[in-house]
Each structure stands twice: as C-alpha cells, then as structure tokens.
Write a protein that binds this DNA or RNA. Structure first.
Lengths: 209, 209
DNA sequence: ATTTGTACTAACAGTTTTGTTAAACTTTTT
DNA sequence: AAAAAGTTTAACAAAACTGTTAGTACAAAT
C-alpha cells in the first residue's frame, strides 16, 4: 500500500504507530509485546521491525510525542484581559478537560519515568528550557494581584502542584474513583462534572482572602 | 537452611518474598522477572518456584499485602477529643508521612489495577465492606461542624479525594517534582516539608469560612 | 541405622518474544 | 518494458523467561 494511498486510508506505517500508541499507553513498555502491536495494527510483526527497527525505537517515538503533548498542556494560554481568578479558573478547567480526554497520559509518563532514568532525561530536556520562564510569569502575576489585595500570596510552584495534583489524580485513580462514585450512587460521568467544580473551588478558596 | 535457623537470619522463603516485594514495587508485574527476584534474594530461581510455585502466585501475595497496607492508611484513627480542624490536620499529616515512607505504593497499586481488572476485584473486596461506613462517619462529622458554623459544608468524598490527590501526586511524580524543586534551588527533602504544610493549608482554606 | 521429609542444585524443556532474512510482490522510475 | 526501489510474507534464529524434574544433601523421626 504505497502511493495508491490517494484517499485517506492509513498506511501500514501509520497503522503500526497508532497501534503502538494505544498499546503502550494501555500496558506500558514492559507489558507491551511487538506481536501485540502488530496484531492490533493488522499486520505481521515483521512490518513493525521493517519500519521502526526495534521496540525500543518505536517506544521512544511514542514516549517523546506523548511527553511533549502532556508538557504542552501545562502552558495553557488564557486571554490576558480576564481578571486573574477567571484566568486561573479557565486554566484549571482547560487542564481538567485535557486530562479527561487523555486519562492514561499522566500515568504513562510518570511510570516510564520512574522505571527508566533515561526517560526522565528526555523530559528534563523538554521541561528545562520552558519551566523557569513559565514559573516566573505565574509568580509575577500572583505577586501583582496579591499586592492589590485581591488574592492571597502563594508560591507559584505550590499552586501549580495543587492544580495538577487535583486534576491528574482523579483520572489516574479512575477505577478506584468509580468505586467511590458507585458507593454514593453516581456513575463516573456524573461524578466528573462535580469533581471539576470541586477542583476549581479548592483553588479559589486557596487564593481568595 | 531449615531448623538450624535459630538466630534471626532470614530464611530462603523470606528472602524471596522480600526481594519480590522490592522488585514488584520498583518495576511492576510485567517488568519483573523471576530470575531477577531470585538474583536479588541470592538464591537460584528454582527456589522461587519451589516455595511459591508461580510468578503470578507470588505477585498476588505481594499485591494483597500492599493493597491492604495502602487501604489501611486511609482509615486513620485520630483522637476524638480534638477540635475537628485539628483532627483533619493530623489526618492529612499522618497520611502524608505514610506516603512519604512508602512512596512507590500508590503508583504500584494504581498501575496493577489499571492493567488487570482482576486486581481491581481484589481491591473492591477489601474496600467494599469498609468504605460506606467510613464515608458516612466523616460526612456526619462534617455536617455537625457545618451546622455549628465552624466550617464550610463539603461533600465527604470530595474532601477525601482532595486530600489523597494532594498527598499522593507529590510522591508519584517525585522525579518531576525534583525538577521543579531544583528550578527554585531547593532539594527534595526541603521541598517535602513545605509541601506538607501547603497540603494542610489547601484543605484548611477549603474548610474554613 | 534406616526411613522420611525438607531444602536445595543443576540441568533441561517449552514457550514467548524480539529481531532477521530471503524471496515474492508491487510500485515507481527510467 | 526493464530496472530499481519499496513493501510484504513466511520462515527462521537467538535469546529470555517461566516452570519442571531428577538427583543430592542433610536433618529429624522411627
């Protein structure tokens, strides 16, 4: 299937990549088998090696892409004209929705980082150049607002951790959260909206005087 | 090494179990090899099969024990005479310290649950009988305090999720948190104490009017 | 002293998994 | 149309991994 690929049928190469993403996200590196990826893509596993040479190689491509995606989700751009608390609220909700749309993503990255220091290096390279600038900008805005007395003065990195903790954990622990939701007679999707409001409220309470 | 095991030298069986706990916690089920466990325990891998028959069997023992330990950490018993907010504060700090002492534990359990539904069932059996009672007790206390006007009225399950999210994420994302800490010139252990205070403060702000 | 049971070793067997290769087939280029 | 380049298949090879087994050593029981 080469250049009669005129329409939008996906190529073997793409099918393998898509299957690899799904498998790695679901199972992690160790539990994913190249044969499993090939089966999911509907091709022989020799094709996987033909296009991507090794499992490690294919994984690293997936990992880089996913790490970039996750890291990118933190630098949310919010309309600068809104009041500060409105901006924070929007940022939390946007981030929450992103994780909701990619619930496996944080655990996948965290896991692979913990299990292989080399993967942490990849993330460091991605985060390193951006982080100080982002943090400084947030802190600057916080300090300006605090000086006006509209919010409490908090550390930017603590605030960031608060938000990410609240948003990520809910989805990372989804199976357990479902048990909790069931015990109060709600299903997960009902619970989801309530949780988004709660996360926003927690941060609002932290910031307002 | 049978009955000349008079002192407190650990038996082969115990050595294997200890090595298995360490390996499974570090690497997860899939990445852990029985040969690796045996090597760590300083025995031949045949001994592992001799005492525990299969990898799956050994894993399940470890999983059950660790799940029990984690679940147990949620039902913290706090001196009933303290004011409500003091009790909450103590509970958060105790939970934080527990996770700090067992930083791999939450991710280990969450991961294995996500990757194998059968393991979720094990947790359900452990949580199921306890959860409703615990939640009801907490909610009852919240409602009583709220009626007195000393705190805001919140949902018990949301409050629980808030606390666990804040405490667990910090350690699950430890390698990334270290990058964050380094970027503001602190090392992890310094950051740890500040983070504990922040987590308490977030919940206090959520509860106080 | 002999039997019995437990602990242990070393070698092996079966399976799974990753990766390769030679040959066939298809498409593109000349 | 022929050559070249790219794609696919099937079979194979090597390594890793889980689990077994036959036999050994040694302590405890009879």
């Amino acid at each position: 299937m080469k250049e009669q690929n005129k329409g939008q049928e996906i190529s073997t190469e793409q099918a393998i990549m898509a299957a690899a993403e799904a498998e790695f996200l679901e199972k992690g590196y160790a539990a994913t088998k190249t044969t499993g990826i090939a089966r999911r893509a509907g091709v022989t596993h020799a094709m996987l090696h033909y296009y991507y040479r090794t499992k490690e190689n294919l994984f690293e491509m997936v990992f880089r892409q996913k790490a970039q995606k996750l890291i990118g989700s933190f630098s949310v751009v919010v309309d600068g004209d809104l009041p500060f608390l409105e901006k924070v609220k929007t940022a939390i909700e946007t981030h929450f929705d992103f994780i909701a749309a990619n619930p496996q993503l944080p655990m996948f990255i965290l896991n692979e980082i913990v299990r292989d220091p080399q993967r942490l290096e990849i993330c460091k390279e991605m985060i390193g150049p951006v982080l100080p600038g982002v943090m400084a900008r947030i802190q600057h805005e916080i300090d300006r607002e605090a000086a006006q007395g509209t919010i409490r003065r908090v550390e930017a990195h603590q605030l960031l951790l608060d938000i990410v903790s609240l948003n990520v954990f809910f989805f990372s622990a989804q199976p357990l959260v479902q048990i909790l939701a069931a015990s109060i007679g709600k299903d997960f999707s009902e619970f989801l909206e309530a949780r988004k409001r709660e996360n926003v409220q927690v941060i609002m309470d932290r910031l307002t005087v």
